[in-house]
């Protein structure tokens, strides 16, 4: 039982990170129908930038805030320089553009930072709590609460503020949104900034536990993607549930079956989801119009 609880703890911790990546996917996907394969690089940049700014002598909170700001700026640039000029391109082209962006950012991180594995100290020390025989790191609590805070904050933004509603309107019908006076270009930039900031936040929160390096983005993006699809593409609540589920499945696979194949769990979940219910757990069934 304590063993199972341990898996649940570690599963929820990584699951919360996957949920944030999936949430980042969802924000951009809803605003632009682009699936951003560079989403994992936002997480990497958040973690790596914090490490280097912190090492330069800035206090950890300041470093984290700067890193998130920096990543959000890169998100805006990505939209401005790569996504906006490619409007109207085919799905295949867009996939290659965002994968290109992902490889580019990875290469850039490798030059600007380095190829080493890094971490910075946990926010509240490394002394674990002991709960019913299982250990829980204080940083895990930071991750879980941080993810919950981001989720609630975004929920409030999208449902309570005019700006948030403008994003939803743009997602729903770009032309109609523009006709009622919404600056859709600004909304796109905002979505990329938000999405990048969410990813960077995940990177900041989880780096003390999982460490970071220039190349962690690919796997994170793929698992975040798996989470988003499991939950139902475009549904923020689905992204949250999907992320936690993938984390739990992965942790129990690693614990009970084989740690070599823990990464396989996410992909088997993706394939099964796509085959059995392509709309995901909370997605809507779509109908082809002819």
């Amino acid at each position: 039982m304590s063993e199972f609880l341990q898996f649940v703890f570690s599963g929820l911790t990584v699951g919360a990170v996957y949920a944030l990546v999936a949430l980042g996917f969802t924000i951009i996907y809803n605003a632009s129908s682009v699936v951003n394969f560079a989403q994992g690089e936002f997480v990497m940049l958040g973690g790596m930038a914090t490490v280097f700014i912190f090492d330069a002598g800035v206090p950890i909170w300041g470093a984290a805030a700067l890193a998130i700001l920096l990543t959000a700026t890169i998100g805006i640039l990505l939209n401005k320089l790569a996504i906006e000029p490619a409007r109207g391109a085919s799905v295949v082209n867009l996939i290659i553009i965002t994968i290109g962006a992902s490889i580019f950012l990875r290469g850039l991180a490798q030059i600007v930072f380095d190829k080493q594995i890094h971490r910075f100290p946990a926010f509240s020390g490394d002394t674990p709590f002991n709960i019913a025989g299982a250990t829980l790191l204080p940083q895990s609590i930071w991750v879980l609460f941080g993810a919950a805070a981001v989720f609630i904050g975004l929920y409030a933004f999208f449902t309570r503020t005019l700006m948030g509603k403008a994003v939803l309107a743009t997602a729903n019908n770009r032309l109609a949104a523009r006709l009622v006076g919404i600056n859709t270009n600004f909304i796109m930039a905002l979505s990329f900034a938000l999405s990048a900031a969410v990813g960077a936040t995940a990177g900041v929160l989880v780096t003390p536990i999982t460490l970071t390096s220039y190349d962690i983005g690919v796997m994170l993006a793929l698992k975040g993607f798996a989470a988003a699809m499991l939950g139902g593409m475009g549904n923020p609540f689905g992204a949250l549930v999907g992320g936690l589920l993938i984390g739990l499945i992965e942790a129990t696979t690693a614990g009970y079956l084989s740690s070599d194949y823990k990464d396989a769990a996410a992909f088997i979940v993706i394939l099964l989801t796509l085959f059995v219910m392509p709309q995901g757990l909370f997605g809507q069934k779509s109908m082809e119009r002819v």
């Binding site: 790569a82 867009l94 290659i96 553009i97 290109g100 490889i103 580019f104 950012l105 490798q110």
Partner: peptide
């Protein structure tokens, strides 16, 4: 060192400007 940066750039540029 720049191999990835170049590959990423080529992918983006060609797909944006030569669809």
């Amino acid at each position: 060192e720049y191999e990835h940066v170049m590959l990423g750039l080529i992918m983006m540029l060609v797909m944006i400007f030569m669809r």
